[in-house]
């Protein structure tokens, strides 16, 4: 063990190199899978906001998405089944209570009525904030309209929620407050862009 100091350095170097190259190899192998997962989650959410779209198997998602949806300059996707404009899908994202919340909201031809909403990425508290992905919550958005002004969507406590309001989830006030904020920001921004383009 005379050259132990050099040996230690070489040893660390070799070990690090061997382990790192194994990791890089594994990551490269799975990278495409990760990308596909993200893309499919997003596309699945987009298709789900229009109740009229029926998807029979997961294999259909990507073809239907690429056929019927076009990204427009306003930041929203235009839903064009058979070429005719039939609605918009506005993606939104922002900080939730724990980690970012990402989702898409479907908006009808009138640019006012929501057709549905889905969240494809979130990590809110299980049993509380994470319930935004449950039907009882997201189904409320369908058919509600986006009001004028800076607060097009209102998420309010169930006891105070009016006809056009969304009932918040009890115990998940923070998630709901943040969700409302980031959703409204996205809608307001979209409106500004639409106006600029004179649509």
């Amino acid at each position: 063990m005379k050259q132990s100091r050099y040996f230690a350095v070489v040893y660390m170097f070799v070990l690090t190199a061997v382990l790192s190259s194994m990791l890089i190899g594994l990551e490269r192998l799975t990278r495409r899978q990760v990308k596909t997962n993200e893309q499919i989650a997003f596309e699945r959410a987009v298709l789900a906001v229009f109740p009229q779209i029926e998807i029979k198997s997961a294999a259909e998602i990507h073809p239907v998405f690429t056929r019927d949806f076009v990204l427009s300059d306003s930041g929203a996707y235009e839903y064009r089944p058979s070429g005719q404009l039939a609605g918009y899908v506005l993606p939104f994202e922002g900080p939730g209570f724990w980690a970012p919340i990402k989702g898409v909201v479907g908006i009808g031809m009138d640019q006012k009525t929501m057709t549905g909403i889905r969240f494809y990425e979130q990590a809110e508290t299980p049993g509380l904030g994470a319930r935004i992905v449950e039907p009882f919550f997201y189904e409320q958005f369908a058919e509600k309209s986006l009001t004028e002004g800076s607060r097009p969507v209102r998420i309010r406590p169930p006891s105070e929620a009016g006809g056009n309001d969304i009932s918040a989830i009890t115990g998940a006030t923070q998630t709901c407050v943040r969700l409302e904020k980031l959703l409204n920001e996205a809608v307001v921004q979209w409106r500004v862009k639409l106006q600029e383009q004179g649509k």
């Binding site: 063990m1 132990s4 100091r5 040996f7 230690a8 040893y11 660390m12 070990l15 690090t16 382990l19 194994m22 990791l23 594994l26 990551e27 799975t30 899978q33 990760v34 997962n37």
Partner: peptide, 26 residues
């Protein structure tokens, strides 16, 4: 070598944790 024992351990542990992380993500 004893002098780099802790570093080697940390490296090995991190190696397996990253494998778990990559597999879960994919």
């Amino acid at each position: 070598p004893r002098s780099v024992r802790m570093m080697v351990q940390t490296l090995i542990i991190a190696f397996f944790v990253i494998i778990v992380d990559i597999l879960l993500r994919a």
